[in-house]
Design a protein around this nucleic acid. Structure first.
Lengths: 224, 224
DNA sequence: ACCTGAACACCGTTCAAGT
DNA sequence: ACCTGAACACCGTTCAAGT
């Protein structure tokens, strides 16, 4: 209060890096497109009612901000992997990652933009920790961890812009139908038809879980 | 020749979709950054000495063009998988994908932008065909194919912008050193140090091959 | 130190106009 | 049908100027 009644509408809470990240997540979550395209500097300026320079004073680049936002989303749920059986713990940990991204689809696309962002390191750590508990360390652990991480990133990359994530089941169906029709026109190969059919019928989450199980079985088999 | 000597420098070859795709690949390959950022409409206009409308007459959007360029790169090498042993054939096929992308790093990032682009369908097909030859069809084939495809996409996504793809080994080393130092500052966890060390020492291609082997072993184990 | 907001150098896409 | 190029509505980033 400066007594003039004319003071600019200054937000009560000061601008911090954490607040900017939170605002970025809000903007990204509010966008139904699922890719990260909604997060623009100007959208962020509106959300925070501030200028570009203020944001750049706390954050070096928009890419850094995207990385921080993705990491923040993946921060919470990984402690929950307290299963007694380390095998179940690994499944629980990867499923927690999957579900977090399902809830924030834009994270999927963000993770494959760069391997050296904090969120990817976090996933690496989570998986490596559980592998350790499974008694898989050293070179074998690195190979298993790399395989699992690549699988997770690849699984999750297109959850935002891919066939999943539609408002209702009908819209999803319609999209898949048109997709397989499009393929059918271009490709006479019956194999493609099979793929389209499988895509139409599969359950993303179940498929993901099956994939993790396959890899774990392969890791165990390689150990002998 | 119109006799005036003033005719606009018209390229001898007409503009076609195929020629535009070829020009896009040239632009992308010429860029050493490895992500696809070099392909802009304006760079393409320069390469083809034409206007934006001419390009848009043959191609709907720049995204479509990126998808076509990636698919074109992956068109050639997959026939080479004529191994007698179907297991070797599958390894050869996935390695062919990996090597093609290594030669055109921008393809890696492109593949994770959308699941319904032609290049991803091509990879799906390639893998499904070899799984078929291995006697894995139906639901089991879909699960195995999905797992392998996700792994391939995840493996390859960051080959362009990640730690690989550097002019010389020294530059690569320097980058990895600074990365692990950065992690060391933020993270006291010794696990992160291990990861950084592993990253510093590993061979991308070997790691990829090991991953495929693990998954195939897991698929075989699940069959029994 | 923190913030403002104009300015800059880019994007992809559209479209009336030309041949 | 095919191409031209100006115009439009965006981007991220910088920076002199204010408090």
């Amino acid at each position: 209060m400066d007594g003039t009644g004319r003071r600019a509408v200054r937000r009560s809470d000061a601008l911090t890096k954490a607040r900017i990240v939170a605002a970025a997540i809000e903007v990204l979550d509010a966008d139904k497109s699922g890719d990260g395209s909604a997060l623009t500097l100007r959208a962020l300026m509106t959300q925070l009612t501030t200028g570009s320079g203020a944001i750049y004073h706390h954050v070096a680049t928009m890419d850094e901000l995207r990385g921080l936002a993705a990491d923040e989303v993946l921060r919470s749920p990984f402690d929950s992997a307290n299963e007694a059986d380390p095998n179940d713990a690994l499944l629980a940990a990867t499923l927690a990652i999957f579900d977090s991204i399902q809830a924030h689809p834009w994270v999927g696309g963000q993770l494959t933009r760069s391997a050296i962002q904090p969120a990817v390191v976090r996933i690496w750590k989570t998986i490596a920790l559980q592998l350790e508990r499974l008694g898989i360390h050293g070179q074998a652990g690195a190979t298993a961890g790399s395989t699992l991480t690549s699988f997770v990133l690849g699984s999750v990359a297109n959850n935002g812009s891919g066939p999943s994530r539609f408002a209702n089941a009908e819209e999803r169906m319609a999209r898949l139908e048109s997709m397989s029709e499009e393929w059918a026109k271009r490709e006479s190969d019956p194999l493609v038809q099979d793929i389209a059919t499988q895509l139409r019928e599969h359950d993303d989450r179940q498929q993901f879980l099956d994939g993790v199980r396959i890899i774990l079985r392969g890791v165990a088999a390689s150990k002998e």
